[in-house]
Structure formats: C-alpha cells, structure tokens
Computed example of a mutant assay.
Amino acid sequence: MARLFGSEISLVILMVMLYLVVRTLLPLLAFVLAWWLLSRLIKARVARLPRVPLNLPEHSSSPRRKDRRIYARKLRRKPGLRTASRAATAPRSWHFASAVLSLMVLIATVIAVPDGARFQVMVGNLIGYAGTVVEVQVPVAAQSVVLQAWQPALAQLGRPTAMRYPIARTGGEHEAHAVVPVQVRLLGDRMQVAIARPVDAEMLRAELARLAGLPVEAIHVQQRDVAPWRESSWQPLPRL
C-alpha cells in the first residue's frame, strides 16, 4: 500500500513538472517559430526588390556611411566607376510588424495553454488511462434512444481531477479542477461507453439495463485501458 501511494505521489509530481515545462516553453517556442518564419518571409520579399543605385562621386558624402563604404570599395577595384548599386534592405516597418506579430503569437499561446487540470485530462486522453468499458449491441436506429436513457446514470460517472501548481508572477499557488468525461463510441450496431474510473460491474449493468429496458445479459462490462485520442471514434458523452 505504501509503495502504491508513493508511486501515485511520484506520478502527480511528474505531471506537475511536465505541465510547468510545457506552460513555460511552449509560448517561447511559438514566439521563436513565428519570428523565424516572418524573418524568412521578409528576406524572401527583400530578395525580389530591385537593387538601389548609388550615384556618388568619389569625394561625395552620403547620408548612409554603408553606401560610402560600398562605393569606395567598388571604386578601388574600378577607378573609372561613377555609378554603383547595393542590395535593397527591408524597411524598418517590416521588422517592427514582425516583432509585433511574434509578440501577439506569444500572448495568444499563453492564453491558449490550458490550466493544469485540463492539461492532465488531455495527457490522459493521449496516453490512456484505466477505465471501465460498457458494450451493448443494439440496432443503429435505437442507439440514440438507449444513450438518452443512460444519460442520467452516465453523466454522474465523470472522474474529477485536480492539479495544484505554483504561479511564478504572484508567488502563490493555483488549484485547477476538471472532469475526465465519459466517452462514447458507435461501431455499427455496437455501442461502447468508456468510464474513466473503476465501477461495480454488476451494479452498473443492472442500472443501465433498467434504464434502457434491456436484458442484463445484453450489456457487457470490462476493465481496460482507454486512450480516446489514439483510438478512433471516441467522443465525449453529449449533454442533453
């Protein structure tokens, strides 16, 4: 028992650390990626611009020191040269717009990152969790009726989850709450319901059979791992 409790604590700590890493690095990664893509776009646009002519006498002064250096270098190579050109550069407004857009991507990513509890639900949907799967074989036309009859019982079987983690900007802690929803999958004339918690199989079969008017033998219950995002056709239980 102590070993099981210790492993659960370790998993909780690992999940909190994973969430903090994702919450910190994902916005920064989005910012860097947006900046890189916009920089490539600016360089591609600048490459299409015509070269800028430099019509400067040898001793003339230009408002751009870089232009004077370019012309002087060309003049040393070709003393009779009286015209030169340089590659076009991007306007400062382009770089400013790029910085603003990258910052907006950063802010949007910070807002879009879910809280800790919802993140935990998403990870569970991806890697899977121990659950109870109910399966019944009914005609396709009757599946919606059966599901509606089961709704009162299934709606109470979502698994609450919570995560407490520190908030750097305030120095305090935040506790987020979410619910792992009941999942439904329709496979032809087979209807499956996944519950993210262990339940009493016999009591559940009897209750579902009573609600839908089905024989208890028609309802099968098994305990197995469920990964809704890796297995096809799973959908959260609709709210009626």
Rank of each mutant, 00 (worst) to 15 (best):
L20D: 04
V123G: 01
D115V: 10
W35D: 05
L208E: 02
V140H: 06
L186Y: 11
G172I: 07
M203K: 14
I70F: 02
T83M: 05
V100E: 01
P53E: 08
E207H: 08
K66S: 14
I70E: 03
G124D: 11
L54A: 09
L106Q: 06
S85C: 04
A176H: 08
G131H: 01
V16W: 02
Y129I: 08
A153C: 02
L11H: 05
A47L: 11
G131W: 08
A87C: 04
L75D: 00
V136K: 00
P114D: 10
S60C: 04
G80A: 04
S233T: 10
S10A: 13
A196L: 11
N55V: 13
L126N: 03
E207L: 02
L75H: 14
L33D: 04
V140Y: 06
E175D: 10
A212Q: 06
T161L: 12
I127P: 02
V113L: 15
L101Q: 01
S93V: 13
Q151M: 04
V105H: 07
D200N: 15
L204I: 08
R45S: 10
G6E: 14
Y129A: 11
L147P: 07
G128A: 06
Q151E: 13
T109S: 14
T89N: 04
Q192L: 15
V136Q: 07
A153R: 14
E202V: 07
R92P: 01
L75V: 10
S102E: 09
W35V: 12
R77N: 07
A108I: 08
R51D: 15
K66W: 06
S61T: 11
P114Q: 12
A99T: 11
A142F: 11
A209P: 03
